[in-house]
Amino acid sequence: MENLQAAHQLCDVMTKRNVTSWNILISGYSKCGNLGCSLKLFKEMVKSGSFEEVILQWLVCLLSVVDIAQRVFDRMEIRNLVCWNAMIFGHCIHGKPEARLKLFTTVVDQTGADGKSISPDEITFISVLCACVRAELLTEGRSYFNPMIDLYKIKSNFAHYWCLANLYSGSGLIKKAEKILRKMPKDEKLPSES
Rank of each mutant, 00 (worst) to 15 (best):
L151Y: 13
H8K: 11
K47D: 02
F51W: 06
L25S: 01
T105Y: 11
L63S: 06
D74T: 07
L25G: 00
C83R: 00
K31R: 13
N80S: 15
A131V: 09
K43N: 09
E52V: 14
A113G: 15
W162D: 15
G141I: 09
L103F: 07
Y168K: 06
K153E: 12
Y168R: 03
S143H: 10
R134S: 15
A165I: 11
D121M: 09
I26D: 00
V82I: 14
I68K: 00
C32Y: 03
C83L: 05
Q5Y: 00
E52M: 14
R71C: 13
N80W: 05
I149N: 00
E122T: 12
K179I: 13
Q110A: 14
N23H: 09
L63M: 10
K189F: 05
K16H: 10
G33E: 07
A7H: 01
M1T: 06
I180E: 01
G33D: 01
N166W: 14
T105N: 13
G112D: 12
G172S: 10
P185D: 06
M87L: 14
I68C: 03
A7Y: 04
S64D: 07
C132W: 13
P97K: 04
V66K: 00
E193N: 05
K16P: 07
D67E: 14
G36K: 11
C163W: 14
S143E: 03
V133T: 06
A165S: 14
H94E: 15
T105M: 10
L10H: 03
A6M: 05
A7L: 12
P185R: 00
A165C: 14
F73T: 01
W58S: 00
N3P: 07
S119Q: 11
I88C: 12
R134Y: 15
L63N: 05
K102A: 15
V133Q: 03
R100K: 11
S21L: 12
T111R: 10
